[in-house]
Structures are given as C-alpha cells and as structure tokens.
Design a protein around this nucleic acid. Sequence first.
DNA 1: TTTCTTATTGCAAATGATTTGCACTTGCAT
DNA 2: ATGCAAGTGCAAATCATTTGCAATAAGAAA
Lengths: 147, 147
Amino acid sequence: MEAMGEPKSQERYEDELRSAGMRITRPRKTILKILAEGEGHPDAMTIFHRASEIDASVSLSTVYRTMKVLEDRGAIQRHVFEGGPSRFEPAGGRHHDHLIDTETGEVIEFRSDKIEALQEEIARSRGYEIVSHRLELYVRKIRGRKR
Amino acid sequence: MEAMGEPKSQERYEDELRSAGMRITRPRKTILKILAEGEGHPDAMTIFHRASEIDASVSLSTVYRTMKVLEDRGAIQRHVFEGGPSRFEPAGGRHHDHLIDTETGEVIEFRSDKIEALQEEIARSRGYEIVSHRLELYVRKIRGRKR
DNA sequence: TTTCTTATTGCAAATGATTTGCACTTGCAT
DNA sequence: ATGCAAGTGCAAATCATTTGCAATAAGAAA
Ligand SMILES: [Mn+2]
Ligand SMILES: [Mn+2]
Ligand SMILES: [Zn+2]
Ligand SMILES: [Zn+2]
C-alpha cells in the first residue's frame, strides 16, 4: 500500500545527473539525499530547511536551481496545487493524480484507468492528442460514517 | 454549440455587484462591459488593454481588484492554467473542465458526467468529499486524419 | 441640487515565489 | 597537481498580483 510515489535512491538521482553530464557537488548531494529519504511532495522551502540541517551553507537558490535541473532531466515532477508553491516528487513511477486535503494540506495519490481513458477519448473526439494533463481533487474528510 | 461558458450581460454583472452593496463606478462599468462582450477566458492584462481603449484612465490595479471582487461574489471564476496568469470566465453556467491547446493557447470547454462521477467515487472511497476540483487537458491538434 | 460619508481609484511600493547576474568556488577530466 | 567550465552564494531582478495612502466620486440623505 505504497508504491505510486515510489522514492528513488540518492545514487539513482546522482546517476541521472551524472549521465546528463552534470557535476555531483556537495549541495546537490545534500539535496538529493533529502529527496531520497523524504516522503511526500515537499516544496522548495521544506527541502531547503531540511538541507540546512545537514549543511547550513546550502542556499535556497541552489535548491531551486537543482529542482529545475532535475525537472528538466525528467528526474522529478513538479506540481503546482491551488494557492501553494511548487511541490516535487520523484518521476518515473506510474502516472497518478492527486487528492489534496484542503484542511491539512495532505496529498493522497490515486489513479483511475477509467478516467485516463475517458480523457483520451475526449481529446481525440475534439481532434487533439493529450500532451499532459492535471487532475486534482480538493477534498475534505467526511466526518462520522466509517468508510 | 456554445453554452457552457455562457456569457452574462453587463446589467447582470452590475446587479450582482449592486445586490452585494457595491458601487457601480465608471471603471467597473467599463470592465463589466468587456466581460459581457468578450468571449473566451481573458486574463487581467487582456481585460486591462481592452478597458484602456474605452477609458484610458482605468488602472490595472482596478482590473485586478474588480476581478477579485467578482470572484468573491461568485460572479466569475478564476482559472490558473499551467504557466500562465489567472484567466477568468463568467460563473454560474454548467460546470465544465478545459482542454488547453499548448500551441495556440486556445481554451476548449468540455464536460464528462462519467469523469465527474468517477471523481466522486474516488474521493468517497478514500473517506473524503470533493470541495472542488481541477481537470485540465493540455493538448496538441492532431495533424491529418479528419476526425 | 447640495451635502456628506465612505467606498473606490490611481499610483507607487510591497509581496511571494522563483529566477538570474556576477564574482568567487570547486568538480573532475587531463 | 592543473585548468577551466560548471556550480554556488548572495543580492538584485522578475512576474503576477496585492496593498497602503491620499485624492476622488458614488449615491443616500437633506
Ligand atoms: Mn504524487
Ligand atoms: Mn470555461
Ligand atoms: Zn491522470
Ligand atoms: Zn469537472
């Protein structure tokens, strides 16, 4: 019960950067370690804070620059949920969409092949092909009633 | 073949503001006229430019403030598509989602009761109820082949 | 109409997230 | 070890949008 946001090892990230001809620097190592350990969908500031604990010299700029590089290399995915800042998660796992708890900010992943298929159908029927899509459900926990 | 983004008359907008105890000022009249006439999903800058042609004294601040007021009153809806600035459209019509042509920026509306139902089902099964949602298909026109 | 109160406006400055210029490091291939 | 381009920290710049403030104008009351 936990496989969509499949995390990547720090080594895996380093290889992705190295194979792209990028240097594995100290700040990058720190940031990658955090992405590898951390769960969820952290934003830049969160990553920055965690990185600071390991190496106080890492700058927020570098966090942003590194996230951008990883995103461009397809190593991570960026999500911009309503209101908030960009949040990231390792890329490469199965595609999925999100449920965002509007009260706690918690992000729950899900996937619906039916919906995915319907989306394709809709685009096709209009003469288009999907390049990418975004499906976000902003929800509130239902009080009472078990399940 | 044209009913989702059902436009509203300028009078309709004015009444919505008046009934909320707000004043109908000259700049607001100008902006509302544009919303009433204009098609599509314009952004603040576009509205500002069009308004400037009618009354060069209207400021961008007022455009933003007016859009916010209209949004808070539920008269219009705001959409923040990937990358770009907020875009607006009259509220009150049937709910629908969007297809965004990644090459032209054109916005096409659609609705799928099946998808809407599946979303509900997904949220419910996780113990949540949907507060709002966002479904956007970023597409590219399919060359050749008719339909 | 004139008056009066206060919402609204234009303008400039502030925000907040993210990016960028620059001079100074530092990976890492040779 | 060396050399140099890639990478970094920091401050300043962006971009879209918001906000403080003094001046202005709705529109209810007189
Ligand atoms: Mn995810
Ligand atoms: Mn629409
Ligand atoms: Zn999906
Ligand atoms: Zn929908």
